Simulated assay, not measured.
Amino acid sequence: MGNVIKMDVYRMLRSRSTYYILIGLSFFLVFLINNSHESLLDSQKGLPVPKAIVGIGFDGNLLSDQMSLLQFFKVFARSQSFILILAIFSVLFINHEEASGFTKNIAGQVQKRGWLLFSKFICQGLFIVLAFLVGLVTVLAAGEMSYDEIVLGNIGQLLKEVGLQFIFHLAFAGILLLIITLIRQAIVSLLVSVLLCFGAFAFLYHAIDRWIQQGLGIPDFTMNNYTITGIISQVSIDSAKGQLIRAVIVALIYGMLTVGLSVTIKNRRDL
């Protein structure tokens, strides 16, 4: 198992596509920084602030003239930028092995084929860490071009927020892993994953909300509290303690179930 993980991590770090995706993330975050500052100026003038840019939303309440790394990280995380890039990386990295026939060649050398997927999940986690680092470096390098000042702020709080978002994003990585394992087609997997990031299934969530609120008599129920995309866009270390605990539990359940299902499917499915 350890050798499989080392092999996949080595391939990931040696792959040009990994760095192309991270560079693309950096350019997109620069665009988001500039756009968020324009929105801040509009709000200061009393103009309405757009809630989404090309399907990516950000919380205008987090913006100010003097931004800290923590504030910017919250903006980036809630904008769904990281999960969008994670979706692209996951589909390209995992599906490439299926298309190239690498999985068939290596499957006979491991005791259980499901370990191959668990190894990919480890690589997804490593990519999340790299994406977070790229985001923070991008802020330090490009943030002051738009904002008056970028301050380090409370590093302890920043690390807590990064750790919390890592749990949420890792749970989303498990969902991506299950989608890719079930569909096995790169284009379709990418389409479904991107639509999930852009909130294309919101109409389904609203239908479930109405059914539970009206049919079961639970007026305060909302699916956003139990979807990873909803949790990422709403929950931070500043959230109420009950909301924070619920979000972490939901994320852990998602992660364990999706990875477990993916590994089980891989073990039972013919190559």
Rank of each mutant, 00 (worst) to 15 (best):
I187E: 05
I187Q: 00
V188N: 14
S189W: 01
S189Y: 03
L190H: 00
L190V: 10
L191Y: 02
L191Q: 14
L191D: 01
L191K: 11
V192E: 08
V194D: 06
L195I: 15
L195G: 15
F198G: 06
F198K: 03
F198Q: 11
G199E: 10
F201L: 05
F201G: 04
F203T: 05
L204P: 04
Y205C: 11
Y205H: 15
Y205M: 10
Y205D: 15
H206P: 12
A207G: 13
D209F: 05
R210K: 10
R210W: 13
R210D: 15
I212Y: 05
I212M: 09
Q213A: 10
Q214T: 15
Q214E: 15
G215P: 04
G215R: 07
L216T: 08
G217W: 07
G217E: 07
G217H: 07
G217F: 09
G217N: 05
I218G: 07
D220M: 05
F221K: 08
F221Q: 01
T222G: 01
T222Y: 10
N224I: 09
N225K: 13
N225C: 07
Y226L: 10
Y226N: 05
Y226E: 06
T227I: 14
T229K: 02
T229H: 10
G230S: 07
G230L: 04
G230K: 05
Q234P: 00
V235A: 09
V235E: 08
S236K: 01
S236C: 01
S236E: 01
I237H: 10
K241F: 12
G242E: 06
G242N: 07
Q243W: 07
Q243C: 05
Q243A: 13
L244Y: 13
L244A: 07
I245M: 15
R246N: 01
A247V: 10
A247H: 03
V248I: 09
V250I: 02
V250Q: 03
A251G: 02
L252K: 00
L252Y: 07
I253A: 11
I253W: 13
G255M: 04
M256D: 06
M256S: 15
L257N: 03
L257Y: 04
L257I: 09
L257W: 00
G260M: 10
L261A: 15
L261Q: 00
S262H: 02
S262M: 02
V263L: 02
V263C: 00
V263S: 08
T264A: 11
I265C: 13
K266A: 11
R268C: 11
R268H: 14
R268P: 12
R269P: 02
R269G: 08
